[in-house]
């Protein structure tokens, strides 16, 4: 006789639901209920729950808990609410006009429907799309620390080429965050005792020997907002996303570029890569190299070599090293002439 015994593990679990009135109340709930989770847009959390990859005992709904003004001007620049949707942020006139690099990156991610749901805070905390991570029957150090990483010797077309460890080679899949890293954003976090503000490139982390940790947010902490400094690179910018289909797919490689020029001389440059590492990849040394140089193809080729130095490919993703270098050069040309950019951050 064949029989199937359903174990606890394979039941979608039930959960309680709370809709607290403010951030403080939300934090009190999360520390008092074991295994509770926040939910905002739900587009990642509810998906993971349906795959039985997360089993919260309670959901604490962050919608309408905080300051919901999508975008506001502050002394140091512009503040994005963590609870505002990706769409309302990308289409906000202040972002369209002053930070078009961010608008383009957001609009290159997911779909119109998902961007109407996904929040800015949730976008920073979305989990990897590694197929082994998504398969509860497979080992995975990120999901089940110590169980191993089948991606390293397995199918790893979408995986990382920079900053990997022998425990995990997953990629952080966000587009929005690549632009936020390039723009020197800061993340405002409300914690148990105090609030803190983290430079964007320090928010996410590399896998090292604790790949279960995607970022530096502590339990019970809430992202309340994201600040952008004044400098938005609105004249010379481009976001390029290379993927297996032209739209509605995660990046194989993406590049956010912002340039400040005087004639053809580069005065300031920002380049961040997505799809290549466990966090948005930004190398200050390459940006220093670019300063005061002529904005030519050769210059950007040299910068690309600096950014990709130390890159290591695996069996199915070695192509990403050359692809990333070419994408950097191509995107620089697009940043020099932003009007040639295409919908969906396709190459032009």
């Amino acid at each position: 006789m064949q029989s199937w015994k359903y174990t606890e593990d394979y039941h979608m679990n039930n959960f309680d639901y709370f809709k607290p009135k403010g951030i403080e109340a939300a934090r009190e709930l999360i520390v008092s209920i074991p295994n509770a989770a926040f939910v905002a847009g739900g587009t990642n959390l509810i998906d993971l729950w349906k795959y039985n990859l997360t089993n919260p005992s309670a959901l604490i709904d962050l919608n309408h808990t905080g300051n919901n003004i999508t975008v506001q001007e502050i002394d140091s620049g512009v503040r994005l609410s963590a609870f505002a949707t990706n769409a309302s942020t990308a289409y906000h006139p202040l972002i369209e006009n002053r930070y078009p690099l961010l608008a383009k990156a957001i609009l290159a991610g997911a779909s119109g429907q998902i961007r109407n749901m996904a929040t800015n805070g949730g976008n920073l905390l979305q989990r990897t799309r590694c197929y082994y991570f998504y398969d509860p029957d497979s080992p995975c150090n990120k999901r089940n620390p110590g169980s191993g990483c089948p991606a390293i010797d397995g199918y790893n077309r979408m995986h990382a080429i920079l900053g990997t460890s022998k425990h995990c080679i997953a990629v952080f899949p966000s587009d929005m965050c690549v632009a936020l890293a390039a723009l020197d954003a800061r993340v405002n976090i409300a914690g148990q005792k105090s609030s803190r503000c983290v430079p964007f490139t320090d928010f996410h982390r590399l896998p090292e020997d604790t790949p279960e940790l995607d970022n530096t947010l502590g339990h019970g902490e809430i992202i309340t907002s994201i600040d952008l400094p004044h400098k938005g690179f609105a004249s010379n910018y481009s976001y390029l996303k290379i993927r297996d289909r032209n739209s509605y797919a995660f990046a194989l490689v993406s590049v956010a570029t912002g340039l400040e020029l005087e004639g053809s001389i580069i005065k300031d440059a920002r380049i961040a890569l997505g799809g290549v590492a466990h966090k948005p990849w930004r190398i200050r040394e390459a940006e220093d190299f670019l300063r005061e140089k002529q904005a030519t193809e050769k210059t950007f080729e040299s910068a690309a070599a600096i950014i990709l130095s130390g890159a290591q490919g695996f069996k199915f993703n070695k192509f990403k090293i050359e692809l990333a270098k070419r994408a950097i050069v191509r995107n620089a040309a697009m940043a020099l002439n932003p009007s040639i950019q295409k919908p969906g951050a396709q190459p032009s």
Binding site: Y17, V39, G41, G42, T43, I46, D47, D61, I114
Partner: peptide, 21 residues
């Protein structure tokens, strides 16, 4: 996208949200 509906005037995916939300 098969589950797309309009919620408060905006297109969203009804499979990725909870009725209670």
């Amino acid at each position: 996208g098969a589950c797309t509906i309009l919620c408060d005037g905006k297109r969203i995916l009804s499979c990725m949200t909870l009725a209670i939300m």
